[in-house]
Write a protein that binds this DNA or RNA. Structure first.
Lengths: 202, 202
DNA sequence: GTCTATAAGTTGATAGAC
DNA sequence: GTCTATCAACTTATAGAC
């Protein structure tokens, strides 16, 4: 309560990013102007440049923060590599669904706006994304080695599973027939079927 | 050979659409200007309006033509409903992969630019997309009824399979380890596993 | 910390010459 | 059928007042 001036530096910064997140997700990076973001925040366009050096950095920071959170959350919730591959895959699938359903705007942007990143920023984001994929691929490799998964190509299966799981965000809406946990279970089951040996007990 | 003037109405129209397809796919609808399209075609910006009433129609026509082709090709290549659901699903998956790999730009646009369609245009495209999904869902329903598929929710499984299959376009590049037909087979196998009963013979 | 004013350039679309 | 010229509105980003 020390300050009573018109300054709001600690609050306006996050609001700028929140407004950009919403607007980029809804209309696309290229279609959103800095003036629209400013209007959403309730300031004039020029004031935005106190919080971001430019529009590109706003996009990059949203993507990088999203992937930072994704990788950190994955590390904290993943089963240890000693666990059996089926349980690790089920855990990964549930985690992926619940994490992605919780932040649809950031997921949408991280997907759709890759082509609007400058080359250096694109490379940084791709490296992080690749790290996420590698975690799933290791689960599949371990499962194949243990004889519980039957996969022709672990790289393709990794990308196929991630595409399948991420697809949930295109249709899920709160208040539907199934809750988030139900949907996570349905997808985890499908993911397991996609790669598991048919003669493995359920 | 009747005309030797500078007019090229029969050739310029298709070239405008081809240029828009390439540029929209690469940079996004909102990020591409009519002047860029004109430059790609080799005419001035004003000349484009002989071939499209506006930029929005250019986008909508690309999407509608793509989905028209998709639905027509599906009808002509699909197995009859009398065939067994496993073969029908394998056929659908192979068709989807090969059709989508053959026209990555149109697929990308039909996906990523939905939010840039005006409401009426969006509704028209969604209806067509829904028609495509319904074909797959019928296969799954028939398979469940016949006892060869085990699916908790045919609508979710339909969307999950389509997301998985379409994901091939994010990574496939010509000249890699596997050819298109190989990739189609790998995905068809994964699609079948995703929904097939475990106790069904291979 | 935010505003107003402004720079310098781009946008979609149209009118009229050729 | 295509061009040039043009319009009004918009863009990102900055400078300087308060």
């Amino acid at each position: 309560m020390a300050r009573k001036t018109g300054s709001h530096s600690e609050i306006t910064g996050p609001r700028v990013r929140a407004a950009a997140l919403q607007l980029f997700a809804r209309h696309g990076y290229a279609a959103v102007s800095m003036r629209q973001i400013a209007a959403e925040v309730g300031v004039q366009a020029g004031a935005l440049y106190l919080y971001t050096p430019d529009k590109q950095s706003l996009l990059f920071d949203l993507m990088r923060d999203h992937l930072d959170e994704l990788l950190a959350a994955l590390q904290s919730e993943l089963l240890p590599t000693e666990a059996n591959p089926r349980d690790r895959l089920i855990g990964f699938a549930r985690f992926h669904i619940l994490f992605h359903l919780a932040r649809p705007e950031a997921v949408f942007i991280a997907y759709m706006e890759l082509r609007n990143l400058e080359p250096n920023n694109f490379a940084a984001i791709e490296t992080m994304r690749r790290g996420y994929e590698d975690v799933l691929e290791l689960i599949l490799r371990d499962g194949v080695a243990a004889g519980v998964f039957a996969v022709q190509d672990t790289k393709i299966a990794t990308l196929a599973l991630i595409a399948m799981l991420t697809g949930v965000n295109t249709w899920f809406r709160e208040g539907g027939r199934l809750g988030r946990a139900d949907v996570a279970d349905v997808y985890a089951d499908m993911a397991l079927r996609t790669v598991a040996c048919k003669n493995t007990a359920d």
